[in-house]
């Protein structure tokens, strides 16, 4: 992969290994290679799709990018800056630039916080000088941006459906004005009809705000629809990559062919 001017994020030979087995005091019995030498790049304002079955390591890559998983080897470059070399304080500004949307809209929102609290928390952290009135206005604006009503600020997550909660998760990610969002199976837990709404919303936001996505999913049809480039992953390795429509039309790898055969069609 050559450095092109519009590359936002580049991952080089990333490895994330976990020690498994062994008791409280025993030494680990084996090492699980969740991610085993993956390189990828995400361009500004574009979508890179990452597809594979559960256990393939795709979620671990997403988590490693935002420092939710420890990297064993390899490096992550954000606008050419090595993120692995940064300490927590130096990494802080990058937390504002990179956000994440999670798979399960039921477990990723704090049930005891009102929407106002959920959306204001990132604002307080990353915009400490923002006034109370400005914060309130901003949360209302965010809710409207994702197709909800600003009046929902005083409500709790349990009052919303799965699709609405996923919109709240998206609003929370957008709060700090990120450039890059890791979308970790954002539509897998939703009905097909709601899935279509969320996919359309993500595309609209990308166009309006110039966001870059790493879109992680197991359904190749959805990934093809939203992505510019697609990476197919199995057992911690990327086995095929290329233009989304090209990969689907002419899959070269056996595993990709298997994935395509599994997508229901009629």
């Amino acid at each position: 992969m050559n450095e092109t001017p519009d590359t936002l994020l580049e991952v080089k030979d990333l490895k994330v290994h976990y020690a498994t087995g062994g008791g409280l005091l025993g030494s680990p019995k084996s090492v699980t290679k969740a991610v085993d030498g993956v390189s990828l790049c995400v361009k500004r304002g574009r979508t890179t799709g990452l597809v594979g079955e559960s256990g393939s390591g795709k979620t671990t890559i997403g988590r490693a990018l935002v420092r939710l998983a420890d990297v064993t080897a390899g490096d992550i470059f954000y606008e050419g800056v090595s993120l692995r070399a940064l300490d927590e304080r130096q990494f802080f500004p990058y937390r504002k630039r990179m956000q994440m949307i999670f798979q399960d809209p039921f477990n990723s929102l704090n049930p005891r916080m009102r929407l106002a609290g959920i959306l204001e928390e990132p604002l307080r952290i990353h915009f400490p000088k923002m006034s109370v009135q400005k914060r309130a206005a901003r949360t209302g604006e965010l809710l409207e941006q994702v197709g909800l009503s600003a009046d929902f600020r005083a409500r709790y997550p349990h009052e919303f459906s799965g699709g609405q909660r996923q919109r709240i998760g998206i609003a929370r990610a957008l709060a700090v004005e990120p450039e890059f969002i890791v979308c970790d199976e954002p539509v897998s837990a939703l009905d097909v009809s709601v899935q279509a709404q969320i996919v359309n919303l993500l595309k609209d936001l990308q166009k309006d705000l110039g966001l870059a996505y790493l879109f992680i999913a197991h359904d190749l049809a959805v990934v093809e629809h939203i992505s510019d480039e697609v990476l197919v992953m199995t057992q911690g390795k990327i086995v095929e990559r290329g233009n989304a429509h090209e990969v689907v039309a002419h899959p070269k790898n056996e595993y990709t062919q298997k994935l395509i055969a599994a997508v229901p069609r009629f």
């Binding site: 996919v199 190749l220 049809a221 093809e224 629809h225 689907v248 997508v263």
Partner: peptide, 9 residues
Amino acid sequence: CIPMLGDTR
């Protein structure tokens, strides 16, 4: 509303 493979919508 179901996305299909090879769909260019």
